[in-house]
């Protein structure tokens, strides 16, 4: 269990997160949604241990994150940052292998794990390609494979409890968005707690067990998608009319509630 309570994070004299509490559980996929500047990425950074909050504490299985150190945290959770990059043109297989740095080499089969991670996101054929010669979508998936490899390597070391993804679908087309979320769901089914920052509410409705709607550094609504995604709640938080309907298979469909142009 990853527990955060009383989290306040200050930036430039303003509270980006304001006395916020959240618990991540194993085997549950939590989507973090909300307008720009609501504090989604900041909250993910606090939960990953990257940012220390001004007030409040975050604990993993009862231990404060700050006590775990970079290597301990890297085994316990894997993080995909918003716009991952690589300065050196390593081959994709080596980029993926970088994710396993926290686990001693002798204890894992690095090549098998890297191959599995690349296969899981459909880039196995790119293994030898230099990472700087990938398209935007291929690069995003290569970094996702690195993070999956980190998670699995952590699992062999008794960790791999949480997967945190910051807008993993931002630069991807529709099919790849579904592919990334499917990969995240597989990890949830394997018992990992998944936290994913999403802009696309329809993706959140389709894949998340629980939605946390942030607004101005506070939780505006929290619960299963059907409870959080209500027209009046979303319209209020996003400041624009939002319609929520049921699709033909019962799935939620969320969209702007605007009159047609001209």
């Amino acid at each position: 269990m990853l527990e955060a309570c009383g989290i306040t994070l200050m930036r430039g004299g303003r509270a980006v997160l304001d006395d916020l509490a959240l618990t991540l559980r194993p085997g549950e996929c939590t989507a973090l949604v909300g307008p720009n500047g609501a504090g989604k990425s900041s909250l993910l950074a606090v939960l990953s241990g990257e940012l220390a909050p001004a007030r409040g504490r975050v604990t993993l299985a009862g231990r404060p994150l700050s006590a775990l150190g970079a290597a301990g945290l890297a085994k316990a959770r894997a993080v995909l940052e918003q716009a991952p990059s690589l300065s050196a043109p390593f081959p994709v297989a080596e980029l993926v292998a970088l994710g396993m740095a926290a686990v001693p080499r002798a204890t894992i089969d690095e090549h098998a794990l890297a191959a599995r991670a690349m296969t899981a996101v459909g880039i196995a054929h790119l293994a030898a390609r230099p990472a700087n010669r990938l398209s935007g979508g291929e690069r995003a998936r290569a970094h996702l494979a690195r993070v999956l490899a980190q998670l699995w390597a952590g699992r062999t070391a008794g960790g791999g409890h949480f997967l945190m993804l910051d807008e993993p679908t931002a630069s991807l087309d529709l099919a790849h968005q579904v592919g990334v979320m499917t990969a995240a769901r597989r990890e949830r089914d394997a018992g990992t707690g998944v936290l994913v920052v999403l802009h696309d509410l329809n993706l959140a409705a389709a894949f998340a067990d629980r939605v946390v709607l942030l607004s101005d550094g506070r939780i505006a609504a929290e619960g299963p998608p059907s409870a959080v995604f209500r027209s009046e709640t979303l319209s209020r938080v996003y400041g624009t009319p939002v319609a929520v309907e049921r699709g033909h298979r019962g799935a939620l469909r969320i969209g702007l509630d605007l009159p047609p142009a001209a």
Binding site: A120, I123, A124, A127, A128, R186
Partner: peptide, 23 residues
């Protein structure tokens, strides 16, 4: 897609089904 299928998107997807020969 069912949760257990890998992403099948790229042109080389048939080859991807088996574990690749990582360099």
């Amino acid at each position: 897609p069912a949760p257990s299928t890998p992403m099948r998107l790229s042109k080389g997807s048939e080859m991807d089904a088996s574990l690749p020969a990582v360099p």
